[in-house]
Design a protein around this nucleic acid. Structure first.
Length: 258
DNA sequence: GCCCAGGAATGTA
DNA sequence: TACATTCATGGG
């Protein structure tokens, strides 16, 4: 189905680093897998996409997943008219990026895995995890694997996890899954609290520090005021902002600026 | 083959 | 609180 969208560029979103399961397939199409479902998207022009899914799935799932109802153009205009020249270029460079509403558990595990890995390696690990512990689904001629449930990872054998290339993070993954299953942390509930509290709770998990917690808050709990500082952002802060970046002017949506 | 990656835990001062 | 060290593995 043909859909009109604003500030939406599927390639930019796929390459933005916030997700690891949106990849280019064939004929310029991109396939996203989330919430047990799969969608193929082709960008037709700046404001039009061709989405291969039912109207119902678009309305009840993907529209929300891609945060379609949020006005990104407003923020783009604010930055373009602002006095930060670096951000003026950044908003140009990152045009069409939207902050996805990913599954909290998938986001948590994915970003635990992300530490000290490059993005291709992260993607490989996540896919192996889905193949081994997810559920295989068929959609016409294509198949895909869903992201594993907390239960399946909590009961995973630690040696099996190690074989997937998780390295020392295998213990982090297993313990995080166990904590979710046991209810030591309630990810869904953390959506309701402010992001500071959410980050605090996430950091109680073994293997979750400030950076991973911020990413989970931003990409999984949709606390768009969260501002993850990874090595790349830190380099920008050091090189262009004399070591300190003030998020105050962007209060409430610093994550989009990031 | 080497280098190093979207960090975090642990130890030390 | 502020650094230093260590961690397992694969992609470029």
């Amino acid at each position: 189905m043909i859909i009109k969208v604003d500030n939406f560029d599927i390639k930019q979103i796929a390459d933005s680093g916030q997700c690891f399961r949106i990849n280019r397939t064939v004929n310029g199409k991109y396939r996203a897998i989330a919430y047990g479902k799969c969608i193929d998207i082709k960008q037709l022009d700046n404001n039009t996409i061709d989405a291969d899914c039912s109207e119902e799935d678009w309305e009840i799932l993907w529209k929300d997943y891609f945060d379609i109802n949020y006005d990104y153009d407003k923020i783009v205009e604010t930055l373009k008219n602002g006095n930060d020249n670096f951000l003026k270029q950044a908003v140009e460079y990152g045009s069409g990026i939207r902050i996805l509403k990913q599954e909290p558990f998938e986001t948590l595990i994915s970003f635990i895995i992300s530490q000290r890995k490059n993005i291709p390696a992260i993607k490989t690990c996540v896919e192996l995890l889905c193949e081994r512990y997810g559920e295989r689904k068929f959609n016409g001629s294509i198949y895909y694997n869903t992201f594993p449930t907390p239960e399946s990872l909590a009961s995973a054998d630690i040696n099996d996890l190690r074989e997937l290339g998780l390295g020392y993070r295998d213990e982090y993954v297993k313990r995080a899954a166990i904590d979710v299953v046991r209810g030591n942390i309630n990810l869904e509930e953390l959506k309701q609290y402010d992001y500071g509290y959410a980050i605090n709770e996430l950091m109680k998990l073994y293997g979750v520090g400030i950076k991973v917690a911020s990413c989970v808050a931003l990409f999984g709990l949709h606390h768009i005021e969260a501002f993850p500082i990874d090595v790349w952002i830190q380099r920008i802060i050091d090189d262009y902002y004399n070591g300190y970046f003030n998020t105050k002017p962007y209060e409430g949506y610093a994550g989009i600026v990031q």
